Amino acid sequence: MLRLNLRDKNTLLRTSFLSELGPTAMASMLEIANISSYEARDVLFREGEPADCFYTVLSGYVRLYRLNKDGREADIRICGPGDIFAECLLTLGDTYLYNAQAAENVTLARFDLGRVRQLAEQEKDVAKAIMRSLSDHLRGTMDCIANDRLQTAPQRVAHYLLTHCGAEEGPGSVRLPFQKSLLAGMLGLAPEALSRAFSSLRKVGVTVRGRTIQISDISALKQI
């Protein structure tokens, strides 16, 4: 267990779950938070295990995924600083719905499900925050499904690059905050499909060097 330092506290205060809480509800949520760190590849929980907490990522990245009976893995989501996961269990369910693994060294805030449920009965702000978080995830899931069905693999990669390069025209670059294998999972692609997508984007000036991706012409990339 770790103490909540200023940086972690500021990350928590900016999350969609806590950012709009009133002073009383905010103080109660911060009191409930338990701070823990995990090393890369540590398993936080497995699908089907009894659920006792939901989480906020303070630093690092967490991979959420499912396994089929043959051991094949399917990434559901990559959670970074400020992201919340497993909070859907606040309203329904008592077992985890997927596996969670530290993709690298991470620091997390853990919130006891039972205590937050009790707090939500006393504080309307907390109940509203739960509804808002679930609504945000529903909208995000709908966008993800639509993109998977409407966009090709190169278009998914292009969309990610355009969203994160910070420029509207001319050249640009993106520094991936994690390994390309995590980007593949985030975009719903197999690693080899991601490699083929990057190869196809070379024609519009996209080059990859480790985690750094250079874009020679953002306008051309927008046409993919």
Results as ranks from 00 to 15, higher is better:
Leu13Cys: 00
Asn147Met: 15
Phe111Glu: 00
Asp52Gly: 15
Ser216Met: 07
Ile130Thr: 11
Ser216Gln: 15
Glu123Gly: 02
Met142Ser: 15
Leu221Ala: 01
Ala27Leu: 12
Glu123Tyr: 00
His164Phe: 04
Leu134Glu: 06
Tyr160Ala: 06
Glu168Ala: 13
Phe45Gln: 02
Pro191Ile: 14
Ile145Met: 13
Leu162Glu: 02
Thr212Ile: 10
Leu187Phe: 07
Leu92Ile: 12
Val43Gln: 12
Ile218Phe: 05
Gly22Met: 06
Ala193Leu: 11
Arg209Gly: 11
Thr91Phe: 13
Arg209Phe: 08
Ala167Thr: 12
Phe85Val: 03
Arg14Glu: 02
Val57Asn: 04
Val126Cys: 07
Asn5Gly: 10
Arg77Phe: 13
Gly188Ala: 06
Gly210Met: 11
Leu21Cys: 03
Ala193His: 09
Ala158Asp: 04
Gly140Cys: 03
Leu6Trp: 03
Asp70Ser: 14
Lys222Val: 00
Arg41Ile: 01
Cys88Asp: 00
Arg132Trp: 08
Lys180Gln: 15
Asn68Arg: 12
Ser200Lys: 12
Ala197Thr: 03
Leu108Thr: 05
Ala109Val: 12
Asp52Lys: 09
Gly166Lys: 09
Ile224Met: 07
Leu108Gly: 03
Ile213Glu: 03
Val208Cys: 11
Ala197Ile: 00
Val206Lys: 01
Lys180Val: 07
Ser36Cys: 11
Cys165Ala: 02
Leu4Cys: 04
Asp143Lys: 14
Ala25Arg: 12
Thr141Arg: 10
Thr95Gly: 02
Val57Glu: 07
Lys69Gly: 12
Leu13Val: 04
Leu18Phe: 04
Leu189Arg: 04
Ala109Gln: 00
Lys180Leu: 13
Phe45Ala: 09
Gly185Ala: 11
Met26Val: 06
Lys69Asp: 08
Phe45His: 07
Arg149Phe: 15
Asp70Thr: 02
Val116Glu: 01
Val157Met: 05
Ala146Thr: 10
Ala184Lys: 08
Ser219Arg: 15
Gln122Val: 14
Leu182Gln: 03
Thr24Val: 11
Asp136Glu: 14
Val206Tyr: 03
Ala129Pro: 14
Gly140Pro: 07
Gln214Leu: 15
